[in-house]
């Protein structure tokens, strides 16, 4: 039966409300973080360390493409010495946090949703409740903290690798020497460029962890349900990353 527009709006508000409730409860249970260091560390390893290879590849080629595209155009006006500043600012402000966020949402977020969704349909989460273990404290909080800690670290790593990729193309294809490239970064990259990217990473970490866990908890209907939840988790995370990126960019860089 076709849902009316009002019913869809009501569903969307319902969903938003439940996400915010899950976020509030997760933040509340962060008080137990020091008693749960082992699971948090395990999640940080999964999210951060095991994501390094794909993050490295993505960041390297992003930096290289940025340098190639901008270097080619800048060469026409003989201002290719600015290439370092453009690559670094782009990586730190946008490409680093957004692409890393998307990678983590696709790899880690999908995995979290699939894992929790499978637990939901096989009654493992109900079993935790019967053992008087709060599922949000046991399952969501470690993932939440791991995400908000590791994503900014991954973004710093991604920015550095991206700048390194930009350097390779600048030196060997555009013809900008090392000192010119590094001076350009030093003179034009600001602290705001860097921390805006880290704030975005922090926000994206919240989005990915909460959306992925929520979708996992609301999974119904066996294997098919797990597949649907995983897809929904990735799509919603991607959309929210782009939406929040816009508003955060406005907040940091729009001239008043």
């Amino acid at each position: 039966m076709k849902q009316s527009i009002y019913s869809r709006i009501a569903d969307a508000l319902d969903y938003t409300g439940e996400i915010l409730i899950l976020l509030a409860k997760t933040v509340y249970w962060c008080k137990s973080a020091f008693k749960n260091l082992k699971p948090i560390a395990k999640q940080m390893l999964e999210m951060g360390v095991y994501t390094l290879p794909i993050t490295s590849l993505m960041s390297l080629f992003t930096g290289m493409v940025l340098a190639l595209q901008t270097g080619t155009e800048l060469s026409k006006y003989h201002i290719e010495h600015l290439i370092g500043s453009i690559v670094s600012a782009s990586m730190c402000r946008e490409m680093g946090p957004v692409l890393t966020g998307l990678i983590v949402a696709g790899r880690v977020g999908a995995s979290m949703t699939a894992e929790l969704g499978t637990m939901q349909v096989s009654e493992e989460i109900d079993a935790l409740k019967t053992l008087a273990i709060n599922p949000i404290r046991y399952l969501v909080m470690p993932r939440f903290l791991a995400c908000i800690i590791m994503l900014p670290i991954l973004v710093i790593y991604s920015d550095c690798v991206g700048m390194a990729g930009g350097f390779i193309v600048s030196k060997f294809q555009i013809g900008v020497d090392t000192s010119t490239y590094l001076d350009s970064i030093k003179n034009f990259l600001t602290i705001r460029d860097v921390y805006s990217g880290l704030v975005k990473a922090f926000v994206f970490g919240i989005v990915i962890s909460i959306i992925s866990c929520y979708q996992g908890f609301r999974t119904r209907g066996g294997a098919e349900g797990v597949g649907k939840s995983t897809t929904a988790s990735v799509v919603i995370s991607f959309l929210l990353i782009i939406v929040f990126d816009y508003f955060l960019t406005r907040m940091f860089f729009q001239k008043s």
Partner: peptide, 11 residues
């Protein structure tokens, strides 16, 4: 204590 039909062990 509860025994589930499928045991519901954490895999």
């Amino acid at each position: 204590g509860m025994l589930f039909q499928s045991a519901a062990l954490l895999n």
